[in-house]
Write a protein that binds this DNA or RNA. Structure first.
Lengths: 196, 196
DNA sequence: CTCGGGCTTTGATCTGTATCAAAAAATATA
DNA sequence: TATATTTTTTGATACAGATCAAAGCCCGAG
């Protein structure tokens, strides 16, 4: 392939333009800070305790953000398929070491930008502040919805909701992972799948 | 009292200056959009289904943001004491009707700004965008911590965590409310308080 | 001071979901 | 194709916390 990243840069362009209006030279500047990268299935991109220095944009494949509880249980906080960003956002914001891991669940090609470059863009490109605002707003709304789903729905209802709002997750990922996303045990997921 | 709002404006000034650097005339402009208001105990400020047109800054007293589940349970999403903002943020962001209520739990004096004016400030005062960014970042981090606490802690652990990070909530508010904040029944809260 | 209505506590019971264990099925490896 | 490994299913049991019910307590209104 002559231009292996052509498509991914385009995908990102489309994503950005869907949110903000930018001049072409600004867009070029923005894109110039995103580097392509390929990761294998199960590879870790951010390791617990490490300051998250990068934000990822998935071109193809899937990333999951998860953490591990005191008694060793994995909990999946976020799943990003193609054309989505994935960041250990809390650590990105606070600049504290990450409590979370980021892992590829499939062979994944992505673009990444460093923390430093991301903040640099905030300074040199006014509309990037706007982009970030929308990104934060969106992350906040998602998180709140997820919080509400845990506070108000039982396991079956959460699974039903996931099926209707995000069927890809159930279709593409193994039960094991889906269960950690719904915060139920594999056994319970298996049982309620057979009932629905 | 001659200047009943003097203190509250000062409180807000201190809050804003703790986050961003603003010129005095910018600050005056900002403050000019915040109007004072008093609400009685139990009074509702935002009603379910209403587009949230306001953001509140608590001068004195306490506001809670809550929603009601399908089977009629109240769930408290956020509690704001003095020197804190309270917004039905999802509805503020999406401009959709609010799924949440905002209610005073004590006689409360506050400053409010309309949605429209808030966005107007974003346009005319560049550092306000910065303020809002910090506000969003902070809201996001809080929400994520709360999400994690529900995913990883049992009732007793959540109560202990609340006691250590936010003792005011336990001290100032009736069990009933604390229970809806921890998402446990009053009976369970009563039982675990007696054990600790 | 006292009466009434809400809070809080205590007890008994029930239920959703976890956990443990093992079989069955699917997938990867040789 | 056979074998090893992982994932999913099924069954049995245990438990945290809900719900229902009733008694006790507190605090404000008159």
């Amino acid at each position: 392939m002559l231009f292996p990243n052509f498509t991914m840069q385009e995908q990102l362009t489309r994503y950005i333009k869907g949110i903000i209006t930018v001049k072409d030279e600004e867009l070029d500047k923005i894109l110039s800070f995103f580097k392509p990268m390929k990761v294998e299935k199960n590879e870790l991109l951010v390791i617990h305790g490490q300051t998250s220095q990068r934000t990822f944009f998935v071109g193809n494949g899937c990333l999951r953000i998860f953490f591990i509880t005191e008694d060793g249980q994995e909990v999946t906080r976020y799943l990003a398929f193609e054309n989505n960003f994935a960041t250990a956002l809390c650590s990105f914001i606070s600049k504290e070491p990450s409590l979370e891991f980021i892992q590829a669940l499939e062979p994944t090609s992505l673009l990444y930008i460093s923390h430093k470059d991301f903040y640099h863009l905030l300074e040199i490109i006014p509309s990037w502040e706007n982009f970030y605002r929308h990104y934060l707003e969106n992350a906040y709304v998602n998180n709140t919805n997820r919080l509400m789903s845990f506070l108000t729905l039982d396991a079956t209802e959460r699974y039903r909701q996931l099926l209707s709002t995000n069927p890809k997750i159930v279709q593409r990922l193994p039960n094991k992972i889906v269960a950690t996303y719904l915060n139920i045990s594999q056994e319970t997921l298996s049982r309620l799948k057979s009932k629905i």
